[in-house]
């Protein structure tokens, strides 16, 4: 992954979020407060501006800037979570060009940070349910010799699968947990947006 690919990734997320804004809002309205789409749109459109305006010296700089922008623009639960995740990932990628293994380590660090901050386990019906299997799949693909594009595709597939699997769960973290059993039968919006983030990586990698 190089700096341009990192930027393309962020642009790709922004485009996906813009496209899916309304759906994310509706998913969030069903079990939360309805702002998830709007939150991410605000965050990633600012992040795109920020990373276009900067002259980064590393892949990590792009991701760190993205994270910092998300933290200072999004708010809510997803702002600190996505923001810190991108920052944690960025910290690991202090080079102009990084290998799939490095990206794997960065994604692991991001997952770790989300877990630490939010305290959610897999099965709690949060973005972790998409991110954790995605990171696993990414690492496994790289382990078995896959390139970035291949690993990212595996990660995106796993994230989408993980997001779908949140539907029957009862939420134990975040706003949806207030609903108790009524949270069952709905997709977790953060898990769905996490799948968008990883699909955007796969698409950027496939083109890059």
């Amino acid at each position: 992954m190089d700096i341009e690919l990192a930027r393309a990734w962020v642009r790709g997320i922004d485009a996906a979020v813009e496209r899916e804004r309304e759906r994310l809002g509706e998913l969030d309205a069903a079990v939360g407060d309805g702002d998830h789409g709007e939150n991410l749109r605000r965050g990633f459109s600012s992040a795109v501006e920020a990373v276009e305006a900067m002259d980064p010296d590393s892949v990590g700089a792009v991701l760190t800037k993205t994270g910092t922008t998300l933290v200072s623009r999004v708010g809510g639960a997803s702002g600190p979570l996505y923001g810190s995740a991108f920052r944690a990932a960025g910290k690991r990628l202090a080079a102009e060009r990084v290998e799939p293994e490095d990206v794997g380590a960065a994604l692991s660090a991001a997952l770790e940070e989300v877990r630490r901050l939010g305290g959610a386990q897999t099965g709690d019906k949060t973005m972790v349910d998409a991110l954790a299997p995605a990171v696993d799949a990414f690492l496994k693909a790289v382990d078995s010799g896959g390139g970035l594009s291949e690993a990212a595709r595996a990660a995106a597939d796993a994230a989408e699968e993980g997001a779908r699997a949140t539907e029957p769960l009862q939420a134990r973290k975040g706003r949806a947990s207030y609903l108790g059993e009524r949270s069952i039968g709905h997709l977790d919006p953060g898990a769905v947006s996490t799948a968008l983030v990883l699909r955007a990586l796969a698409e950027a990698a496939a083109q890059g």
Partner: peptide, 27 residues
């Protein structure tokens, strides 16, 4: 930004145990 109510509530029903963010309540 949503432009419509966060949930549909029939004329004879209420949401009990709601928060302050327009989420549905406990029941």
């Amino acid at each position: 930004s949503a432009g419509r109510p966060g949930f549909e509530l029939p004329e004879d029903e209420i949401e009990v145990g709601v928060g302050i963010h327009g989420e549905p309540g406990r029941r």
